[in-house]
C-alpha cells in the first residue's frame, strides 16, 4: 500500500521523464526487438501472407539444407580466412602506427600526420571501392606501374587469388589512422613518472616502449582483440558486394553476402534468415571463448 503510493507520486513527479522514455522504448521495441522476434522464421516456412507467427514450423530443415549445401564449406572457409587476414594484418596496423606516432618529437608534424591519416575514415565505402576498382583495373594505375617494371599486367578483379589482399589492404588504408586514436588515448593516460623513472635507470626509447608503453596499452589491445574475434564471422557484406563478381566468388563469397543474395535478391527468406542466425550464434560463441581464454591467460576481460 505504502509502496504503491510512492510509485504513484514518482510517476506524477517524474512524468516528463517517463514520457520521454516512451518513444525510445517504442523505437527499441519495433526496430531492434522486432527483427529478433522475426528470427523465428529461421524455423518456419515463411510466407508473406501468413506472417511470422502464422507460417508453418519446419524445425531445423533450413539449417540442414545449409549444412548440406555444396557451398557451405566454401562460405565458411572464405569468411574465416578473410577474418583471419584481418586479425593478422588489419588489427595490429593501428597499434604499430600509434606506437610510431608516439615516438614523433615535433608536435606540429605529429598533428599533421594524424589529421591526414584519419581522413579516409570519412570517405564512403562506395568511393573507396570505386577507387580500388579503377586503380586495380586491367588498364589502371597499378597495372601501369606493374608494366613499367616489365611485368605482365595483372587481372586483379578477375583472379580470385587477389581478392583477399585487396579487400584487407584497402581496409587498412581506410582504417589505420582512425583505429590508432584509441591506442593514443590509452598511451596518454600512462603515468609519465614511469618514463622518468625508466630514464633515470638508463632505459632508452626502445626499452621504454617495450616495458612501459606496450604494457600500458595492453588492456585496450586485449579488449579490442576480443571484440574482433567476436565479429570474425560478421565479415560485412557492404564492401564485398561492391568489389566481388562471380569470377572471384571462390574466395570472396562470405556468409553475409550469401545471405544478401539468397534473401534480398532471391526472396528465400526463411532459409537466409537461418543462415544469418547460424552466423550470429557462432560469432557469439567465439566472443565468449575469446573472453574466457583471455580471462584465464591475461586477466583482461570484456565482462
Amino acid at each position: 500500500m505504502h509502496k504503491r503510493s510512492l510509485i504513484k507520486r514518482d510517476l506524477v513527479r517524474n512524468r516528463h521523464i517517463y514520457l520521454m522514455l516512451v518513444p525510445v522504448l517504442v523505437y527499441y521495441g519495433i526496430f531492434h526487438y522486432g527483427p529478433m522476434y522475426g528470427l523465428l522464421i529461421a524455423f518456419k516456412d515463411y510466407g508473406m501472407a501468413d506472417g511470422v507467427w502464422g507460417s508453418p514450423w519446419v524445425g531445423l530443415t533450413h539449417f540442414q539444407n545449409f549444412f548440406e549445401n555444396p557451398y557451405f564449406w566454401r562460405l565458411l572457409r572464405n569468411t574465416l580466412t578473410i577474418s583471419l587476414y584481418e586479425l593478422l594484418f588489419a588489427f595490429p596496423a593501428p597499434i604499430i602506427l600509434a606506437l610510431l606516432l608516439n615516438e614523433l618529437r615535433v608536435v606540429m608534424f605529429k598533428r599533421v600526420v594524424q589529421t591526414i591519416s584519419y581522413l579516409p575514415h570519412f570517405i564512403s565505402i562506395v568511393v573507396v571501392a570505386g577507387m580500388m576498382v579503377d586503380f586495380f583495373a586491367r588498364d589502371g594505375l597499378i597495372n601501369s606501374i606493374v608494366s613499367f617494371f616489365g611485368y605482365e599486367p595483372i587481372a586483379f578483379w578477375q583472379e580470385s587469388g587477389w581478392f583477399r589482399s585487396l579487400y584487407v589492404s584497402s581496409g587498412i588504408w581506410q582504417g589505420i589512422g582512425w583505429g590508432s586514436i584509441i591506442y593514443l588515448a590509452a598511451m596518454s593516460s600512462i603515468d609519465p613518472t614511469l618514463y622518468d623513472a625508466a630514464r633515470i635507470d638508463g632505459a632508452g626509447r626502445w626499452k621504454q616502449t617495450l616495458n612501459i608503453t606496450i604494457p600500458g596499452i595492453m588492456p585496450t589491445i586485449v579488449i579490442l582483440f576480443i571484440l574482433n574475434v567476436g565479429s570474425m564471422l560478421a565479415v560485412g557484406s557492404e564492401k564485398i558486394i561492391l568489389l566481388y563478381n562471380p569470377l572471384t566468388y571462390e574466395t570472396a563469397d562470405v556468409i553475409s553476402t550469401y545471405v544478401y543474395r539468397k534473401g534480398i535478391l532471391g526472396a528465400d527468406f526463411g532459409y537466409s534468415a537461418a543462415v544469418g542466425l547460424f552466423n550470429s550464434v557462432i560469432s557469439f560463441i567465439l566472443l565468449i571463448l575469446a573472453n574466457t581464454i583471455s580471462k584465464r591467460v591475461s586477466e583482461h576481460k570484456l565482462w
Binding site: Y33, Y37, F269, A273
Partner: peptide, 18 residues
C-alpha cells in the same frame, strides 16, 4: 534492454521483412 541490442540483432532478413 539497450545494451542487449548492441550484442544481438535480428540480422538482415528479419529487418528487411519488418
Amino acid at each position: 534492454v539497450i545494451v542487449i541490442t548492441m550484442v544481438f540483432s535480428g540480422g538482415l532478413i528479419p529487418s528487411f521483412l519488418l
